[in-house]
Simulated assay, not measured.
Amino acid sequence: MTIAARTIYFKNDVGCLWEEPLAYLRLEYCAGSREESQFRALLTHTRQALQRRGWSKLLIDQQQMSPFTSGEEAWMTTEWLPRAVLENGYRYGAVVVAHDVFARLAMTNVVMTSRRLGHIYRSFEHDAEAIAWLVSLV
């Protein structure tokens, strides 16, 4: 039996969204500054992919990511995350943490701000640990 290959769902200058054969999405952020419209497009496609596949798990690879801007952070916490959780079934986020300490702090703020939504984030230094946690979830 062969295992299906992962496929690209969406890609732009901000990052790439993959559909993984083990039933989770992988969101990889690119290095550098971002245009907010492209940031929103990437995350909007992420919500749509969660809905389309009926999946609840997301691996968020932030290793190369620069910190969120205040506008990005506000949009994520007030619009994107509530919709992703309440409308699109997002439940589990495995974050492969950024090398940039300020990007890590920005993500910590997003996690703290969104706790009331009931989804679960866990942070990891390496992909293998994040993947193992995601696939262990039912």
Rank of each mutant, 00 (worst) to 15 (best):
M1T: 15
T2E: 13
T2K: 13
I3T: 14
A4K: 15
I8P: 02
Y9I: 14
Y9K: 11
F10N: 03
N12W: 04
C16I: 15
C16S: 13
L17Q: 05
L17G: 01
L22C: 03
L25T: 12
L25K: 10
L25E: 08
R26E: 13
R26C: 09
R26S: 09
E28D: 15
E28F: 03
C30R: 09
G32Q: 08
S33K: 11
E36G: 02
Q38W: 05
F39E: 08
F39P: 04
A41N: 07
L43C: 09
H45S: 03
T46W: 06
R52D: 11
G54S: 07
G54M: 10
W55Y: 15
S56A: 13
K57V: 02
L58T: 08
D61I: 02
Q62P: 01
Q63P: 00
Q64A: 15
M65G: 09
M65Q: 14
S66A: 15
S66G: 12
S66M: 13
P67W: 08
P67H: 06
T69V: 05
G71C: 03
E72T: 01
E73T: 07
W75I: 03
W75F: 01
T77E: 09
T77Y: 00
L81K: 08
L81F: 11
R83T: 04
A84Y: 12
E87Y: 10
N88W: 03
G89C: 06
G89L: 05
Y90M: 15
R91W: 01
R91M: 06
R91D: 00
V95Q: 10
V97W: 01
V97T: 13
V97F: 02
A103E: 12
R104G: 08
R104P: 08
T108E: 15
V110H: 01
V111G: 02
M112D: 12
R115G: 06
I120H: 09
Y121D: 10
F124P: 01
H126I: 09
H126N: 08
A130S: 05
A132V: 07
